[in-house]
Nucleic acid binder design. Structure first.
Lengths: 343, 343
DNA sequence: CTGAAAGCGCTTACAG
DNA sequence: CTGAAAGCGCTTACAG
């Protein structure tokens, strides 16, 4: 079955291909009568313009690329929704790829995005060293918005979260509750948000006049498994910490699992504050106190920045910082604290 | 900065565009010497072939489309991983869209996929009525594999799960534990898997010689909120059921939330068995007994079917049925039961 | 083994 | 307001 193309439509409607193209692109210089006739032909033939051809010729496209670093993390799926909704409202479609926190996979998808000639790209870097690969895309005219993470030596439009302040608040909360030995399960220092959350942790200890025990600072990889493994280590350590601050949602789940298996009670034996809320955090064996991030809004904002950039390629770069807030539930021990007070 | 194209490369390497194209496509009829020279030019210029152009001309593409119906559901994110890994191994890339359980959005994305000329498409339908829209794509040469859900009146390659049997097993488990009044929170009957799970539920009751109380069968929409709402209803009902069988993971979370808020104990006051496991199911206030689905493998299999279809367009349609298994944790009351026995 | 040329399906100045 | 024609960057018979 021969595919119907613009020529078929033109013949059917008795107009030129140029005219069909014009009505397709809502060019106002087409008479009502011709437009109607053309639209009818399009409808009747079920014509679907070939975007590959359009993109080739017009050198512009209405698809936005989005590369997240872990599609299995609810943080990103929520961001994805924000991006999709905002893009859709602006008549753009989005294609999504998953770098799996892997710089090599990221580079590969970057190539694909370039080859696909997406109009612009939102990406969560896998490392602060990703700048060069990203820069390449902007050089060929594909603007980039950085999501959630920064990059060394290069500047892009970015949307970030106040990680330092967020972590500070979470750790301070633990300290205010009386914890003096607070451990941290962090992410890889290759990630800016991991560094920032660690900095927030340090700041909170310093601000409280507490000493920093480097042995209490552990490096995970933002996956469940590492939170689990480090959680066990921490629970087994000789001079056990009173609390753990965990730098992301999945590692928090892992840590909770570890403590459950070891029958370490939360928060009585060890308190926990996590970074990033999830739909299930409140239904866990002990409802999680977390530093919550505006995930959906992160996606919205990133898309908006990209759309702005597309509209004004030469505008100065912009960084949007979104704010976190502490959600106090039970894993931090606040309830316990209240009960004690009541006694 | 003018983009480097095949012409630039050809001139730089001192060969024709045709030759560059040949080395790009690993055409064996190129001499080693010329190939090396061309590759060097490609490397030096950082040439990135324009896929839009290739697709236009070659009328073939190495990108696979994947349309899931709820990107926020861990079921689908796991499926996505399976698809991506399998596609990647076959040198294909995948672009992902989210229909949000909305037939209109699905139609829209279907158009985009067609316009993008993807090589093939894996889709989770939003309704059994989606067949016609899907058929359209196969008519223009884009093969389709149905994921997790079937469709009326049209036949496609499909990968499904043994929903009837899975639900049967879950409900039977509850009955064996002594529950005679088992409620069901199901999905919309527009979805084949929702129908099948309901059928499995009915079968289990019948097999046990129990009567079916239609008032105990509730229709949700596979989102948290509906599980929550119906969970409350059920908890408040006058002749309260002893157990609930919930047809998907997100609704199960909602139901757990509802019961917690109402201080209905699980499983003492009401037992729960859910359909589909999640990473957090075991860490919930009461670890969830679930009918687990092979999610990752579902993605793998769907991709394999699509790849097969691409290789052999005229082969007969195939349906792969993957199997579920029951994971017994605590929400069903099995532990309780054991304790009783021990007394 | 390699090149010249046609053509994929669009869009966009350029005329009129 | 509309059409004829060129061209986007590739691939692929067709020659040689």
């Amino acid at each position: 079955m021969p595919r119907v193309n613009i020529k078929t439509v033109a013949q059917y409607a008795g107009v030129s291909e140029a005219t069909v193209s014009r009505v397709l692109n809502s060019n106002p210089t087409v008479s009502e009568e011709v437009r109607a006739r053309t639209l009818e032909a399009i409808e009747k033939l079920g014509y679907q313009p070939n975007r590959a051809a359009r993109r080739l010729r017009a050198n512009s496209s209405d698809v936005l690329g989005l590369i997240v670093s872990d599609i299995e993390n609810p943080f990103f799926t929520s961001v994805v929704r924000g991006v999709e909704d905002t893009a859709q409202a602006a008549q753009k479609s989005v294609i999504l790829c998953n770098s799996d926190e892997n710089p090599t996979k990221l580079k590969n998808y970057l190539k694909i995005m370039e080859a696909e000639r997406v109009a612009g790209l939102i990406v969560a870097p896998t490392s602060m060293k990703d700048g060069e690969s990203l820069q390449r895309l902007t050089q060929v005219g594909i603007p980039i918005v950085l999501l959630d993470r920064q990059v060394d030596n290069y500047v892009f439009d970015s949307v970030l979260v106040d990680n330092i302040r967020g972590a500070f608040t979470g750790v301070k909360h633990l300290i205010d509750l009386g914890c003096e030995r607070v451990a941290m399960i962090g992410g890889t220092p290759a990630l800016s948000n991991a560094r920032d959350r660690l900095e927030g942790y340090r700041n909170a200890l310093k601000a409280a006049g507490l000493s920093i025990d480097e042995k209490l600072i552990k490096e995970g990889n933002y996956k469940i498994e590492s939170g689990y493994r480090i959680g066990k280590e921490l629970a087994h350590s000789t001079h056990r910490p009173q609390a753990i601050f965990v730098a992301n949602n999945l590692m928090t789940l892992g840590a909770v699992r570890a403590l459950r298996e070891l029958k370490v009670r939360i928060p009585e034996d060890m308190a926990i504050v996590g970074f990033d809320d999830t739909p299930w955090a409140n239904e866990l064996m002990v409802p999680l106190t977390v530093v919550s991030q505006p995930t959906y809004q992160l996606g919205q904002t990133a898309t908006q920045l990209l759309l702005n950039r597309l509209a004004r390629p030469d505008a100065p770069f912009q960084t949007a910082i979104l704010h976190t807030h502490l959600i106090i539930r039970e894993s931090c021990g606040a309830q316990l604290h209240n009960q004690e007070k009541m006694l």
